[in-house]
Nucleic acid binder design. Structure first.
Length: 1026
RNA sequence: GGUCGAUUAGCUCAGUGGUAGAGCACUGCAUUGACAUUGCAGGGGUCACUAGUUCGAACCUAGUAUCGACCACCA
């Protein structure tokens, strides 16, 4: 006999270990079975399990366990992502906390060693948490994106794309994170609305020139006309004025037509070296916004960058990698003069030379960009070049209002690094790019042609939208933790011939250093000795004849974007570029399961790179996009809200105090802690029970509807824990009644209609579950299994079986014991994908077979399990019991009282049902007798079931007038429905146009209702006559 | 500005043209018999609004209102 309750803590980890040791999660490499593969979205090595992971992996595990039971050869490919920025951040923080040297003083190699050390010790807790959830991953094939094998794949992809020209190095404006001091891709930038200012400044015209500035309203009436010696510019970033290369106005903007082509002065910096810049036209400025004139700072703004490129405007970089105003290079005075010559059209200044020029005036050099902004604003204002307006504080007295500098307070969108949280700076730097546009084309086509399908399908719009407007993908990162870019540099032959300078590098892109050396020899000549520099500095030697003797190459310092290696995940994990069995069997995968937020980061990249490197074959057939898990009120779970529910807490349970402590530590803003504490105590005064992994999984599955967020409530988890308890107790019942658990059932050989009925219900349940899972309707699958188990199996079948199991008919008892055991086992199987632990434990404790439940075959039931006659018969039994119970409750018959009931007007079939099921009906409806009769005794309480009238002989127990009222209420309801139906059937158009089966159905229903009404009316009249 | 989505019972949500549903909460009754992490019975809805299509609309179409997500944005 099993314990009184299921204790998840006592079993879950034990069961998991048994599965793992028995190799239940491994696919067979020589199986003839159809392969089925799911690639896990590799969690960050720094990560720990959150509710999103729990949902994501529950769904994958349901699919994998289901397909495994259906006989497929399943590989659920696990692994982890090295997570460049996140990991480097964690380890740097840890070094700082333990008083170690920082990364730079430690040096690259030593730091990387530290990260690996950290990874071995503390990385990958999430994989163990996935095991707690029950994830049936092929752990023996666990991969890490920085493993040698993966590195080989990364290098090969890089080299191949480079050789095809699909990867290139270029100087472009990129998003720069001044905290991590690296470029990031535009996906890693979060645009947020913040309070900002827009300053309006005057850029004086060169040489004191003036023009007539005219403003008109929509009808062309002049609203303002004045002589001006300046052009007004609005900016939210005054510090970038130092790098302006021009002022642009729209070609159609008449206000500025008189001064287009003239020069104006940037009103900041030493007066004797004010830079003059041209006023140009470009389509970009919007005449209706601000003053209509835009300063063009090509090196610090993405829009300006485009304008500058179009107009040949020089782009002056103003900041260093920390986001401080540059302090390098020659003094400002010298540089400003050169810049002036460039602005006047001097030639011979290439991009590199311009980029090297530091145009930051000496007094701003070395300032942080935000301090520089303040200083620039103050300097311009105090010099009188701010545009002045009447002080808005003196609205009422406009004429006398003092003039103040025109500074608008407004919401502006500002870019922040998603990891660092600091303001991102557009920076002109040399980076590596992938030609994403070229790779995107076949990836778009694959979805258009349906070779990969999104589920729900509306996500394809999002995919197309992004893919069709895709920008070059910046893949280089100025970090240390990651795949180092496989390019080695030496000096160019020209530079060597000219004896320097050596600022132009010749790159050799190759999968390994030795291949790079081979490439270099082709370039420098066979007799030149090529080596990899040990000190990281490229150099060369020349022999006595001035011939090149040796070259030392250095590898590119940068590493690749983490998503570059993640993009190869579906094939790099299977051993590519080797032609492995794993690759043949498990590429392409069946379904990718993920949340929408990484469609761009990951799904799109896997599509592009998979198709490119796997002969056009897509990496997966379906992409199932699941919901985001929120708290029970629909808020995003976040630490600062204190509403994060940790899946591990739900599994293991947590005390209220521990919960509060957990939620208030690690908050970035300590002042939020009391708030969070209060909220947490209020919401979860008792903490969480240990609900176990099964309850959590079932909850997530039950709530995983297509296309809607999940608002998770702990109460719901408790409810599904109760469901597990229910199943557990049903098994206890079966054991007490000596159910036969390890048997087979021949549906044709069954005698008892109740047994025929329950296997038919089981058949309906398992088919519904199969269809729903195939269609990714996990909520439907879960609820079909739930309803069968609780409402059909426990509430009805177990009760119906009681008299048989305790009865004298040995044959009936034996049949029921077999069916009960068998149906329970099939129920375990059906529930196993959702609740693997409790079902495996029940299987283990009810049979002595060696094989695990998770290795059993999915119930392949067919229509022979359905028996319509039995279904009709039991349907009637269920209805009469329910109906008698309902009447009893309505007229307040004491629950314990046994009531005599007679049935009037029963036809043969009903009469047969009465005979066959009298015992169980009497037991479940608490009857004293249940007999067929010609007429009802006076004063009986009546209800109608189909053709028969059910009479409860309880006249003495009830009040006749109350009973009349009860019948009237029912009659009222019936009459309403009947009127509606009559009206509908009286409508000729309905009868003519609606499908015949619908019309017939409604007619039948009308007849039924009328019959019921007539019988009830008779009962009412009889009663009223007393 | 573009795209996608939501609005159904007190709460959280299912429901793709034919009798409005579930879980929780609520009300009444039940405690030796698998299970109180339970059982039985019940109350509760103008399916956001308006107009259309249709024999018939929670569902399809158009519009309105409110809320949300993502993307892109005006210096």
């Amino acid at each position: 006999m099993i314990d009184q309750r299921f204790d998840p803590k006592a079993h879950e980890q034990r069961i998991y270990q048994r599965w793992e040791e028995a190799g239940c999660f491994r696919p067979s490499m020589d199986s003839a079975a159809e392969p089925y593969a799911i690639m896990i979205p590799p969690p960050n090595v720094t990560g720990s399990l959150h509710m999103g992971h729990a949902l994501n992996n529950t769904i994958q595990d349901i699919l994998c366990r289901f397909e495994r039971m259906r006989g497929k050869n399943v590989r659920w490919q696990p692994g982890m992502d090295h997570a460049g920025i996140a990991t480097q951040m964690v380890v740097e923080r840890q070094l700082a906390a333990s008083g170690n040297q920082d990364r730079r003083s430690m040096g690259r190699d030593a730091f990387i060693d530290k990260v690996w050390e950290w990874k071995e010790e503390s990385g990958g807790t999430i994989l163990n948490q996935l095991k707690r959830l029950g994830a049936s991953c092929d752990w023996e094939n666990t991969k890490f994106t920085l493993d040698d094998e993966m590195n080989t794949a990364v290098n090969k992809v890089f080299v191949d794309l480079y050789d095809e020209g699909l990867i290139y190095r270029a100087k472009r404006l990129v998003n720069w994170d001044p905290h991590f001091q690296t470029a990031i891709s535009n996906l890693e930038v979060e645009n947020k609305e913040v309070d900002g200012h827009m300053w309006h400044f005057k850029y004086p015209l060169a040489g004191g020139e003036t023009y007539t500035y005219v403003e008109k309203d929509e009808d062309g009436n002049v609203t303002l006309e004045e002589e001006r010696d300046y052009i007004s510019i609005a900016t939210t970033r005054p510090e970038t004025m130092l790098g302006d290369g021009a002022v642009a106005v729209h070609p159609s903007d008449d206000r500025y037509a008189p001064i287009v082509g003239k020069l104006c002065e940037i009103p900041v910096g030493p007066k004797e070296h004010r830079r003059l810049i041209p006023i140009i036209t470009d389509e970009y400025p919007d005449p209706d916004f601000g003053s209509g004139a835009v300063k063009i700072t090509g090196a610090h703004d993405f829009n300006d960058y485009q304008v500058a490129k179009r107009g040949g405007i020089p782009m002056y970089a103003l900041m260093d990698e920390r986001g401080q105003m540059r302090a390098d290079g020659e003094p400002y005075a010298a540089v400003a003069e050169v810049a002036q010559r460039i602005a006047e059209g001097a030639e011979g200044f290439d991009e590199a030379k311009i980029a090297a020029m530091n145009l930051v005036p000496d007094q701003y050099r070395g300032l942080d960009r935000f301090d520089a902004r303040k200083a620039v604003v103050e300097d311009i204002t105090s010099e009188g070049n701010a545009v002045m307006v009447p002080d808005p504080k003196h609205k009422d007295e406009e004429s006398e209002a003092p003039l103040v500098p025109y500074v608008e307070n407004k919401k502006i969108m500002q870019p922040f690094g998603d990891r660092s949280g600091v303001v991102i700076e557009p920076m002109l730097t040399d980076q590596w790019f992938v030609d994403a546009e070229t790779l995107a084309k076949p990836a778009i086509a694959a979805v258009r042609e349906g070779r990969t399908k999104f589920v729900p399908e509306n996500w394809d719009r999002t995919y197309y939208n992004w893919m069709e407007n895709i920008e070059p993908w910046c893949i280089s990162r100025q970090l240390w933790w990651g795949h180092r870019i496989p390019v080695w540099y030496g000096p160019t032959l020209d530079d060597i011939a000219n004896d320097g300078p050596y600022n132009v590098k010749k790159g050799f892109c190759a999968g390994t250093p030795s291949e790079a050396i081979e490439l270099a020899k082709k370039y420098y000549g066979d007799r030149v000795e090529v080596m990899i520099a040990e000190d990281g500095v490229t150099s060369h030697t020349i022999d006595s004849n001035d011939a090149l003797q040796s070259i030392e190459l250095v590898q590119d310092e940068d590493v690749l974007d983490t998503w570059f290696s993640s993009g190869l995940w579906p094939f790099s994990t299977q051993g590519w570029p080797e032609e492995t069995d794993g690759l043949k069997a498990f590429y392409p995968g069946a379904t990718l399961v993920t949340a929408f937020d990484i469609i761009f980061f990951w799904v799109a990249r896997m599509m592009m790179l998979g198709i490119k490197f796997m002969d056009g074959e897509v990496p997966f057939k379906d992409v199932y996009i699941h919901a985001i898990v929120r708290d029970e009120t629909g808020k995003k779970m976040s630490k600062s809200e204190g509403n994060v529910i940790d899946p591990v807490d739900l599994i293991d349970g947590i005390e209220a105090d521990a919960l509060v402590a957990k939620r208030t530590t690690g908050l970035r803003q300590p002042e939020k802690a009391p708030q969070v504490e209060k909220a947490t105590r209020k919401r979860y005064p008792k903490g969480f029970d240990a609900y176990g992994a099964d309850a959590l999984r079932f909850t997530l599955a039950a709530m995983a509807t297509k296309g809607r967020d999940i608002n998770l409530s702990v109460e719901r988890v408790a409810g599904y824990r109760n469901f597990g308890t229910k199943l557990w107790n049903a098994t206890r019942f079966a054991q007490m009644n000596e159910a036969n658990f390890s048997t087979k059932i021949d549906p044709q050989a069954l005698e008892l209609s109740v047994n025929k009925w329950i296997i038919g219900e089981l058949y309906k349940c398992t088919s519904a579950v199969s269809e729903a899972i195939e269609d990714y309707r996990f909520n439907d699958a879960a609820s079909a299994a739930y309803q069968f188990t609780w409402d059909v199996l426990c509430d009805w079948y177990l009760e119906l079986s009681k008299p048989i199991l305790s009865g004298d008919d040995a044959a009936a008892r034996a049949e029921t014991q077999a069916v009960l055991g068998w149906v329970l086992e099939q129920t375990y199987i059906t529930l196993h994908p959702f609740m693997p632990f409790i079902t495996e434990v029940l299987w283990e404790q009810t049979s002595d077979r060696d094989a695990f439940l998770m290795q059993q075959s999915w119930p392949g039931l067919d229509t022979q399990f359905e028996d319509q006659a039995a279904a009709d018969e039991l349907g009637w039994v269920l209805r009469i019991i329910s109906q008698i119970r309902s009447v009893r409750s309505d007229v307040n018959v004491p629950a314990g009282a046994k009531v005599p009931v007679s049935l009037i007007g029963a036809n043969d079939r009903t009469a047969h049902c009465v005979e066959a099921h009298r015992d169980v009906i009497m037991r479940m409806a608490r009857l004293e007798k249940f007999e067929l009769a010609e007429a009802a005794p006076t004063g009986a309480v009546k209800t109608v079931l189909d053709e028969a009238t059910v009479a409860l002989e309880i006249a003495d127990l009830i009040d006749a007038s109350e009973e009349v009222a009860r019948l009237d209420k029912q009659l009222g309801k019936l009459t309403g429905e009947i009127t509606g139906l009559e009206k509908r059937l009286g409508n000729e158009a309905f009868v003519a146009k609606a499908p015949p089966e619908v019309v017939a159905e409604q007619r039948e229903r009308l007849t039924d209702l009328q019959g019921t009404r007539d019988k009830l009316s008779v009962a009412r009249e009889q009663l009223a006559a007393i």
